[in-house]
Computed example of a mutant assay.
Amino acid sequence: MPVFRLPLERLASLGALLVLWLVAAELTGDPTVLPAPWEMVAPAAKELASGALPFHLGMTLWRVAWSFCLAMALGGLIGFAMGRSERVDRWLDPWLVIFLNLPALVLIVLCYLWIGLNETAAIAAVVLNKIPNVAALIREGARALDPQVDAMARVYRLSPLTRLRHILLPQLAPFITAAARSGLAVIWKIVLVVEFLGRSNGIGFQIHLHFQQFDVAMVLVYAFSFILVMLAVEGLVLQPVERRVRRWRAA
């Protein structure tokens, strides 16, 4: 029963949001302030036909993919080292606290000032913003590793690859998936800010352009195009992976 209820609940929730949008658009009574959903079809079709929407969407997705992979890899290594070594944790914990509380906007501006208005600065700004969050989550996972299972691996002299595959990763999987899901949600928002401030393409750049022209419909077209892609990634990739890695706990 729950398997069939969940999609219906999601559809009902999205339907309620659509109704709220329609009511707000009707109360506003001005398409230049808040257009109704059907008033965005023509602008969206025009952007698709011209190729502008696929191009800018692709550039944003490219930056998100690079930033996500780098942040997960570096943050995972740092967090694991901090969780397994008290000395490393004592050294790096002050850094982690500082970067966790450093505003994203400050890092973005500093990267652009120090590196320049280029792709390297854009990716670096996003990665530096996300590494502390990933490290904090993976550190907790590394601290929660079962020492008895680790001792068993040493007794049976398991190879490092076998220990990684059958002992470390299954225990760290919930923390990795949590970091991935929260990381993706945060990263794409930071990427939009990075593009808004200093890139000449991407969804953030287009939102900035149409913001200057007070074109609410086009701002919504580009915003929703990326939101739909992220919802698809969440539903088709991240949630199935999370269910798979948690399956062993219910066995």
Rank of each mutant, 00 (worst) to 15 (best):
F214I: 15
I176V: 15
H210T: 13
M230R: 03
L172E: 03
R244G: 04
L192T: 10
E242G: 02
V219G: 11
P170V: 08
K189N: 09
A232S: 11
G202T: 04
E242T: 14
V216F: 10
H208R: 14
L192R: 09
V193G: 11
I167V: 15
K189V: 04
P160V: 10
I227G: 12
L220Y: 10
A179F: 05
Q239W: 00
Q206T: 03
L231P: 00
V186G: 11
Q212P: 07
L192S: 11
A232P: 02
L228I: 12
L231T: 05
E195K: 04
E242H: 05
L161Q: 03
L231Q: 11
E195D: 02
V233G: 01
R246S: 00
L161D: 05
I203D: 10
V186A: 15
Q171A: 10
I167D: 07
F175M: 07
S159Y: 02
H166R: 10
L192E: 09
Q213R: 15
L236N: 03
R244I: 01
M218E: 13
P160Y: 02
V219A: 08
A223Q: 13
I167A: 11
A217Y: 13
T162N: 06
L236V: 06
V191Q: 02
A232T: 11
R181F: 02
A232D: 01
V219T: 10
Y222K: 07
V194F: 05
M218K: 13
Q171K: 04
P160S: 07
Q206N: 05
Q213S: 15
H210L: 14
G202R: 04
R199K: 14
F175H: 13
G235I: 02
I207N: 07
V245F: 02
H208G: 12
V194S: 07
A180S: 07
H208T: 13
L236K: 05
V216T: 15
T177C: 12
V191C: 02
T177E: 05
A178C: 10
Q213A: 15
M230W: 00
L236P: 00
A178D: 08
L197H: 07
K189R: 13
A217W: 12
L236Q: 09
I190T: 15
S200N: 15
L161F: 09
F224W: 09
Q212L: 14
I227L: 15
F214V: 15
E234N: 14
R243M: 04
V237Q: 01
R244Q: 09
R181I: 14
R163H: 05
L220Q: 06
L184R: 05
M230F: 05
R181M: 14
L168D: 02
A223Y: 08
F196I: 08
R199C: 03
A217K: 13
